[in-house]
Simulated scan of single mutants.
Amino acid sequence: MEPQKYLVNVNLTSMMEFVLLGFSDIPNLQMFLFVMFLFIYVIILMGNGIIILITRTDQTLQTPIYFFLGNFSFLEICYTPMYFFVGNFSLLEICYVSVTLPRMLTSLGTQRRTISLAACATQMCFILTLGATECFLLAVMAYDRYAAICNPLHYPLVMNHKVCIQLVAGSWISGIPIQIGQTCQIFSLPFCGSNLINHFFCDIPPMLKLACGDTFLNEMLVFTVAVLFVLIPFLLILVSYGKIISTILKLPSATSRGKAFSTCSSHLMVVALFFGSAIVTYLRPKTQGSAETDKVLSLFYTIVTPVFNPMIYSLRNKDVMMALRKWPGKHLRSLKK
C-alpha cells in the first residue's frame, strides 16, 4: 500500500496510532521480502534454538573440565563457561528478533502497517531493553575470555557457576528501569503532522523525527543512555581484547597463537556486527544519515547478528560441532527408552 493512502486521517489518528512504512517504497518486492524474511526468521529460531538445546543438555558443554596450566593449554578453558553465555545469548537473539520480525512479516503479508501507540511503545521498550542486554552479555563474554587467557590459574575461582549466573542475571535486568524510563520519555513528546514512521519497527531516531518542537534535551538523553549501554561496554570489550592480544603475542608457538586468535575471532565478529551498526545509529548526530540508512543499519543489529550467531559460535567451535554430531543419536536413544 502506498504511504500517501495513510495521510487522509492523520489528524484523527496521529495520537492513537502510527504507520510503519517499512519497505513500502519497493511495492513490487513485497512478496519476495515476505518469503525472504520468513525464511530468515525460521533459520534464526532453528539455529539459535539448537545452540540453546545442546548447551543445556550436553554435559561436556555444561561443566568446566578443561583448565589451563600454561600458555599452550589455555585454548579450551577459554571455551568452558562460554557455553553458558552463548546459550543465553542465543535465547536473547530469539527474543530480540521476535520483537521485530513477526510484525514486519504481518505488514508485508497483509499490507496493514498501522500500529497503536501502546503497541509501538511496547515494541520500542523491548527492543531497547534487549539491546542493552546484548551489549552487556557481549561485554561479559569478553571479560570471560580475558579471565581465561590472561589469568588461567585463577580462572576457575573467578568465573565459577555462581558468578556466571550473577553476570547473566545482571545483564538481563540492569537495563530494564532506564529503558522503560527512556521509552516513557520518548512517548511523552507531542506528535503532530504526519504519523508515518519511515522504519520497519518503532525505533528512537524515526520517532524523534515525528515529534513537535525542540527535541534537543531528548536527543541528549538518548545520547547519554547510548554512551552508558553501548559505548562503555564496547570500550570494555576493546580493553579486554587489547590485553588478550598482548598475552597471545607472547606465546612462543605460532600454532598456539593461531588457535588463540581463532578462538576469539568468533566473538569479535559478533561484536563488530552488533556494536558497529548500533554506535552509528544511536551516537551520530540527528542531522546526518537518512531513513534508508537507519533501516539498513537496523537490519544488522536486529536480524543479521541473530542469523550469524549460531553459525559463528558452532562452525568455528570443535566442541559444539562434536555435540551437534552426537545430539541426534542421543535424542533417538532417549526416544526408544
Rank of each mutant, 00 (worst) to 15 (best):
L91E: 08
G49A: 01
V158D: 13
I279P: 00
Y241A: 03
W327E: 08
L21Y: 09
V271H: 05
N160L: 13
L189Q: 13
G87M: 11
H161A: 15
L273E: 10
L137Y: 11
V227C: 11
I77S: 15
F229N: 08
V280H: 09
T263K: 14
K326G: 05
C202H: 04
N195A: 06
S24W: 03
I245G: 03
L249G: 09
I77N: 11
I43P: 00
I40R: 00
V140T: 11
L12G: 06
T293V: 15
V320Q: 00
A132T: 07
P205V: 09
D203S: 15
F32M: 13
G213N: 02
T122M: 12
Q166G: 07
T302C: 14
K259D: 09
G276M: 10
R284S: 13
P306G: 04
P81S: 06
G49V: 02
L315T: 01
S14T: 13
F68V: 10
A254F: 10
P102S: 02
N71L: 12
N151M: 04
K326D: 13
G175T: 08
F72W: 11
F136L: 14
C135T: 05
M124R: 02
D58Y: 03
A119I: 14
S107M: 13
L335C: 06
Y96G: 09
I94H: 11
G242V: 08
E219W: 01
S266F: 06
T183N: 05
P205F: 11
G49I: 01
G289I: 05
R145H: 07
P285T: 02
S246F: 12
L335N: 04
V168D: 10
S256N: 12
I312D: 03
G22H: 00
K243G: 08
V320W: 02
I50L: 14
G70P: 02
Q123S: 03
S194Y: 10
S188F: 14
I26M: 08
P285D: 02
C135H: 06
F300V: 15
V320F: 05
M104Q: 09
I186S: 06
C95V: 05
L157P: 00
W172S: 04
G87L: 11
V239Q: 13
G276T: 15
G181V: 03
V271L: 05
S116M: 10
N218K: 06
A142R: 02
D319C: 01
S194P: 08
Y241K: 01
A260Y: 02
N88V: 10
C164S: 14
T57A: 06
E134Q: 14
V271G: 04
P152K: 09
S298A: 12
L128D: 01
W327K: 04
G329C: 05
N317I: 00
F37H: 01
S314Q: 00
V86F: 05
Y301H: 12
Q182N: 10
H331R: 14
V307C: 02
L273A: 07
I65W: 11
Y313T: 07
I178S: 06
L249D: 14
L137H: 05
V307I: 08
F34M: 06
L105M: 08
V99S: 06
T106W: 15
I180C: 02
C264P: 04
I204M: 10
C212D: 13
F275P: 03
S107K: 04
S253Q: 09
E76N: 13
K209I: 07
L130R: 04
S266Q: 03
V99R: 00
F74G: 10
L92W: 14
F223C: 09
I197A: 01
T247W: 08
L117P: 04
